[in-house]
């Protein structure tokens, strides 16, 4: 009798936890399938290559795709080098007792937990209001607003900051996998510290740097909250021509179309298709990052 109870209880525990696990898998499949099914008929070359028409009830999403690409590109140009150099500092230059290093590590950890929307606030308060106003004052006596308003540059820089911890941590992890032996070999040959970093450490962490970059890009591509009020535009038929332009953006477009479009029901196909494009892009980015990271980690094991 007791044994039977134990057996029943046991299968209940295993069954329940298994069910929980597979419900997650099921949800992932359902969400993806819904979006794929809903969006696949609307996706066409035309959809990807033309701007929206007729009050965004028809046409494509080209400006949104370009806007996202530009934002991500500027973000990477600004953020990845800073992240890589900071990681180099942490792993190669900072001593074990370095206060600066400890402060940076603490700050990076804090930064990683800050909600995305707070980054948006910062972007507004710092870049737009503080730096932007300053630039206007310097460049044009502050008479007309040029930089002191949301634009592509500020949105990208805000995002660069948001993704900074991702870059720093994954590059540092990659740098740590470079065997100490190789550094020793280089130093013993009379190479200086910087020569060793440049010729040995960095080339051998290239995969990790790439992974960090891709992870940052994929995180940045999926994040909408920080650009809500630092540069994203509701509708702009033309592509952004300068850093001080506002821009359309894929994730923001999904949000706008689903909540504020003039006719939510008529554009449901466009909404699904836009979401599908966004999902596909982030999916591919994540996939390549995971692939590269597993390669870095397998080297670590060796």
């Amino acid at each position: 009798m007791k044994r039977l109870r134990r057996k029943v209880l046991g299968s209940a525990v295993v069954g329940l936890s298994g069910a929980a696990a597979f419900s997650i898998v099921a949800v992932v499949i359902v969400v993806m399938a819904t979006i794929v099914v809903g969006g696949k008929d609307t996706i066409s070359w035309e959809f990807l290559s033309t701007p929206p028409r007729e009050g965004m009830t028809a046409g494509g999403i080209l400006p949104a795709i370009v806007g996202m690409a530009l934002r991500v590109l500027i973000m990477s140009i600004a953020g990845v080098p800073v992240g890589v150099i900071t990681a180099v500092y942490l792993s190669e230059y900072a001593g074990a007792q370095s206060r600066l290093a400890r402060a940076i590590r603490f700050a990076v950890n804090t930064l990683a937990g800050v909600p995305a929307i707070v980054f948006g606030l910062f972007g507004l308060g710092f870049f737009v209001q503080f730096v932007g106003s300053g630039m206007d004052t310097l460049l044009s006596d502050g008479t007309d607003l040029h930089w002191a308003q949301p634009n592509l540059l500020w949105a990208s820089l805000t995002m660069a900051l948001l993704t900074l911890p991702v870059v720093i941590v994954s590059v540092e992890e990659a740098i740590k996998t470079v065997p100490q032996d190789l550094r020793a070999a280089s130093l013993a040959l009379g190479a200086t510290k910087w020569q060793t970093i440049w010729h040995v450490v960095l080339p051998n962490s290239l995969t990790g740097i790439l992974t960090g970059g891709i992870l940052a890009v994929s995180r940045g591509a999926g994040e909408v909250a920080p650009i809500l009020f630092t540069g994203a535009a509701y509708f702009l038929p033309r592509l952004p021509g300068s850093l001080s332009d506002q821009f359309m953006e894929l994730g923001y477009h999904v949000y706008i179309m689903a909540t504020q479009s003039t006719n939510v029901d008529a554009t449901i196909g466009i909404q699904y298709a836009t979401t599908l494009v966004l999902l596909t892009i982030t999916f591919m980015l994540n996939f390549s990052a995971i692939f590269l990271r597993s390669r870095v980690r397998s080297r670590q094991m060796r």
Binding site: V31, M32, G38, V224, Y252, L279
Partner: peptide
């Protein structure tokens, strides 16, 4: 991988799914 994919969903996609479906 399912968890990794879920973690990679942009929140706006989850929001869209919740709103529409």
């Amino acid at each position: 991988p399912a968890i990794e994919i879920l973690a990679g969903f942009p929140s706006v996609v989850i929001g869209f799914f919740a709103l529409v479906v």
